[in-house]
Amino acid sequence: MNDRALHTDRSGVLTRISDKLWRNPRLTILLLITLPALWLGIVYLGSLFALLVQSFFSIDEFSGLIIYEFTLKTYGELFTPANFDIIVRTVLMASAVTIAAAIVSFPIAYYAARYARGKWKAIFYLGVMLPLWSSYLVKVYSWKLILAKEGILNWLFETLHLSWLLEAYLSLPIVGGNSLSVSSTGTFLVFLYVWLPFMILPIQAALERVPPSMMEASGDLGATPQQSFRHVLLPLALPGVIAGSIFTFSLTLGDYIIPQIVGSSRRFIGQAVYAYQGTAGNIPLAAAFAVVPIVLMGGYLWVAKRMGAFDAL
């Protein structure tokens, strides 16, 4: 029996390929990596490079044709008041959404990581993931109906005789507007809702890794719950918060659909890119605008790395 097993026929094509690959591990790696590398190199970085090149061209003021000569003029245009407003507006919105998402997510994630067991854990995952399964547009449109002047939220405020409160809030500059659905508060709420799962899940994963004994030890050593939270739990969970914030920040930075449906029509970066590359034919400015989130995210990731967000990877 043994003898026969040793003398099995090793002449099949697949067998020979398998032998060859076993003898040359490098060849195996090369074969495995070629296709993804081509994808990353040509399709992904290639298009990114084409974009970067475009941003160094400029548009001829007179004819509206693109001049294919190196210039930094287009980047200069980003700093005209109207364009700079767009960048500032987008960054402020992305920061506000990120901070609010972290604050809202933390208790939810903490509950899920520490207290939810069995059935409740399943319900938690389902509850967090469920919104991700339905169409993004449907969610945004339903929010438009919730926030509308004749929508559910307004009705609720009226029923509670709190309309004066809402009106006082809406009369504020910047955050206010004619109704919630046409104010930047509305845009903020929808962003917060849509990106929340991307914040909850990383925080929950980070909290799962914090041993409960740490908190107990902190308490035994005389720390108040607040002190334990500030000096033990938060630093240990911070990588998760930062990982989540990368998602919420970058997603808000690039989105161009939500501010078009809910909000005051003031443009965000994504919408500016869309408008400039369209009929305007001002591809260089659109490309320069598209570089802004890349630069911002680059800076953000650098800070995140220094804060140890990727140590757990």
Partner: peptide
């Protein structure tokens, strides 16, 4: 020209 219409209307 139109491309100026685009940028100014955004403003």
């Amino acid at each position: 020209p139109y491309y100026r219409w685009v940028s100014d209307y955004i403003g």
